[in-house]
């Protein structure tokens, strides 16, 4: 199905985009990679009256490391992050995630910040951003920038702290310390299925600790049954994924062969 009619505006700077949002009102939406928004519009789950396209804003496409974090601009495609050399060296949780988002063609268009803003509970980036304690910078209608911790950014399914007339411009992932690691695990029937994950801090690693974390994950997981599996199966798999993620992260720190 085709999307409902809308007006299109191509922004050439962040200020231009924010001013356009102010001009067009509540029903305007930012169009970044469009890999979630366009399907949603085609299914008529989303019906924006105006799309403000930010794909021509070249200054938003960057991956930069500074002041203890990795900054990823709102124009950065998944593919650009996936292939950034410093990701493979130091940001292994991000490397894992970026290689598992949808499929390689979708990743050449889709953006990291766009995925955060879409905030699909089955999306990959919101989960990783939560685990990595990311922060999101948001440009306000007045032209100021506010920074929101990911716990406050993610409000509910498909709902974020980005308010009317605002635009998320950057996500920052803290640079992992030498004794910090992460691992992203996902079960899918085929590429492009939607995602789950975990990261631990503070405790002394042991097999018992991993088993306890797995049991905890099974307990707190609250899945819905669908054609991907029953509640019982999904709860069990939540435990399995958490176990694999912790073991994988520990192995990266050189902590293998636990008792």
């Amino acid at each position: 199905m085709f999307p409902a009619p809308f007006d299109y505006y191509r922004a050439h700077s962040v200020d231009d985009a924010v001013q356009a949002l102010a001009r067009f009102g509540d029903d305007a939406r930012i169009l970044a990679g469009g890999q979630s928004l366009i399907p949603a519009m085609r299914f008529r789950l989303a019906r924006p009256s105006v799309l403000v396209d930010i794909n021509a804003i070249d200054e938003l496409a960057y991956v930069r490391e500074s002041d203890g974090h990795l900054a990823v601009g709102a124009g950065t495609r998944d593919f650009a992050l996936e292939t950034a050399p410093l990701i493979a060296q130091r940001y292994l949780l991000l490397a894992d995630t970026s290689a598992l988002v949808a499929d390689p063609v979708v990743r050449q268009m889709g953006t990291v910040v766009g995925s955060l803003c879409h905030n699909d509970p089955a999306g990959d980036w919101p989960v990783t951003a939560l685990a990595a304690r990311a922060q999101v910078s948001i440009r306000t209608p007045g032209g100021a920038t506010r920074t929101v911790a990911i716990d406050d950014f993610v409000v509910d399914s498909y709902t974020t702290a980005v308010g009317t007339g605002e635009m998320a411009v950057e996500v920052r992932f803290p640079t992992p310390g030498t004794r910090t690691s992460g691992s992203y695990q996902k079960i899918e029937r085929k590429v492009g299925d939607f995602a789950a994950e975990k990261l631990l801090a503070g405790a002394k690693p042991s097999k018992d600790l991993i088993r306890a974390a797995m049991r905890e994950a099974e307990k707190i997981a609250d899945p819905s049954p669908d054609n991907r599996g029953s509640v019982e199966y999904k709860k069990a798999m939540a435990g399995v994924l958490v176990g694999r993620a912790i073991a994988g992260a520990l192995e990266r720190l050189g902590v293998g062969g636990l008792k």
């Binding site: 794909n55 593919f79 390689p104 268009m109």
Partner: peptide, 15 residues
Amino acid sequence: DRAVKSCTMFAVQAD
């Protein structure tokens, strides 16, 4: 240099 799914992109974006 970029492979894109043309069913999930608007023609105006190719301008």
